[in-house]
Design a protein around this nucleic acid. Structure first.
Length: 502
RNA sequence: GGUCCUGUGGCCGAGUGGCUAGGCAAAGCUCUGCAAAAGCUUCUACAGCGGUUCGAAUCCGCUCGGGACCUCCA
């Protein structure tokens, strides 16, 4: 019953104890909507969807906040750089909110495909400029930030002198400064020279004349820094202290470290009690990311339109693929791995469908006590495994242990009476609950076609008649042609026939 | 250069010092008019070297390989 979560802050698994009994506040860093989401982005949102679902199962009232980063230094790929210079006619120019809207819509669509539950609040950075400016003013007033040339920077050196800077990421300030001085940091950051120290980060950036996104502020026209938006929105909707802060491992530094610094100054404490970070999706061992030029967009996955893909992949296949590994392990993408997941998921789902139709009247006593007990053990482990830092792969392994048994019950290889009706009931209940409600998986089948169903029934009837007359030429013709069309026929042990696409 | 992570069978992936994770692929068998599906069986691995221990994939050290972060990044 006790849920343990690996806390990146302590680098240990810790018992999850909500700050306020019965409630859980969770903030997850959402997408930057300046481009299309790729497979790597899918992981945190699916991971924290499971966390959200599981916390609710633990009888907690969850407030799940996931932001949309729609402010910053935006450019859309492919568009002319000069678009940014506002000398074109209104309709020809790139309207920032148009870009943001396009990718926000696409993101929401993808989340729906993945069957992710919507967050309780999905705040946008542009909708919280006032709060961000307020927080920056507070930090300046407390002496931990300075304004220069219309920009505001956080004074990391001063912060580090009084607080534990780098605790989350295990970083030492001196190393960062060294790195900066040694010019290991190759990228020439805009405004780097005006900072007092290379380790300082921007809270507010002055916007050059051609910059498309700009707001008025006490320091001139500009736009907010990346880190402050999360701090401002998290504080507004979850308070100074909340339970879980989540995101990808790559956000640990500097993003989350900076959030801690900002919140510590404004709210006198680090924002979250538990920090959760999912690992990266890799491709040929390398992190999938824009800068590596190795991304596979979600639209490409769903449609199969990428040179590395042999076919389209259903969103549920991808969800299952992600659940088959632990969220803190790196997960290597490949077409073969996805094909394997697709088959595995189909097999598991078919067993689940079979299970729904099993019944064992009022069989009070299991004739095979050992089997009955084994099944109960596997089922009990579902929750134990999830309690252990959301070990979804282990739950899935147990489901695969149960699948051959379910199929054997159906085919009569093992009599259903072997287990008590109580155990069967539990099996049905837990399988359904964990598969659908916790893992959020839904049927991949598209068999519910109003027109196709009766047609298939007719064809299967004709085939059955032919088989009875030993007219195998006809029965095989029906089967083979259907196979060629991508419809698979399965003859059941009881004489019936089922069919499926793919 | 610094900090951290990691190296598991053909492939993907769990692994809390002692008892077969699991999936995909492959092979054989059962069932079947033949298939498919399903069931059963086989394939027993932990980068290398050394150490701790009654016992190590799991702990420690070294070597080699891969990766992440230090810069926008899920």
């Amino acid at each position: 019953m006790a849920l343990s979560i690996y806390n990146s802050f302590s680098r240990k698994k810790e018992l999850f104890e909500p700050i306020t009994a019965g409630y859980a506040g969770m903030y997850v860093c959402g997408p930057t909507v300046s481009g299309e989401s790729h497979l790597g982005h899918a992981r945190p949102y699916i991971t924290f969807d499971i966390v959200n679902r599981y916390l609710q199962f633990k009888k907690l009232k969850v407030r799940y906040v996931r932001n949309i980063t729609d402010a910053g230094h935006f450019e859309e790929e492919g568009r002319e750089a000069e678009d940014k210079v506002s000398k074109k006619a209104q309709l020809e120019r790139m309207e920032p909110m148009e870009l943001v809207q396009k990718y926000t819509n696409l993101f929401h669509w993808a989340m729906k495909q993945f069957n992710c539950i919507e967050p309780s609040i999905e705040p946008t950075a542009t909708g919280h400029i006032v709060e961000q400016i307020g927080m920056i003013e507070d930090i300046i007033a407390k002496g931990y930030a300075y304004a220069i040339n219309g920009s505001v920077y956080f004074d990391v050196k001063k912060y580090a002198a009084n607080y534990d800077y780098g605790k989350l990421s295990g970083r030492v300030l001196e190393d960062l400064i060294d790195a900066g001085n040694r010019e290991v940091v190759t990228r020439d950051l805009e405004g780097q020279s005006e900072k007092r120290d290379t380790a300082d980060f921007a809270l507010w950036k002055s916007a050059p004349p051609e910059h498309i996104m700009r707001w008025k502020s006490p320091w001139g026209e500009g736009f907010p820094g990346w880190h402050i938006e999360c701090s401002a929105m998290a504080t507004k909707y979850l308070g100074a202290n909340f339970d879980i802060h989540g995101g990808g491992m790559d956000l640990l530094f500097p993003h989350h470290e900076s959030e801690i610094a900002q919140s510590t100054i404004c709210n006198h404490s680090a924002p979250a009690k538990y920090w959760m970070h999912n690992n990266m999706i890799t491709i040929n061992g390398r992190k999938m990311g824009k800068s590596y030029n190795n991304v596979i967009k979600l639209t490409e996955l769903f449609s199969g339109s990428h040179p590395l893909l042999s076919q389209p992949f259903h969103p549920m296949t991808i969800r299952f693929f992600i659940l088959q590994s632990h969220y803190r392990s790196p997960l290597d993408f490949s077409n073969d791995a996805l094909l394997a997941s697709e088959k595995a998921f189909k097999r598991l789902w078919e067993a689940f469908e079979v299970l729904k139709n099993l019944s064992s009247e009022n069989n009070e006593i299991a004739s095979d006590k050992e089997l009955d007990e084994k099944i109960n053990n596997w089922l009990n482990e579902f929750e134990l495994f999830m309690d252990d830092d959301f070990s979804s792969p282990k739950v899935i392994a147990n489901m695969f242990e149960l699948s051959p048994l379910i199929n054997s019950f159906k085919d009569g290889i093992i009599p259903v009476k072997s287990i008590s009706h109580h155990t069967l009931h539990l099996l049905k209940e837990k399988f359904k609950f964990f598969l659908e409600d916790i893992f959020g998986l839904i049927s991949i089948d598209s068999n519910n076609n109003q027109i196709l169903n009766p047609v298939m029934e007719l064809l299967l009837d004709l085939r059955k008649e032919a088989k009875l007359k030993k007219d195998f030429a006809t029965s095989d013709k029906i089967r083979n042609q259907l196979t060629a069309m991508g419809i698979v026929i399965k003859d059941e042990k009881d004489g019936g026939t089922s069919w499926g696409i793919g």
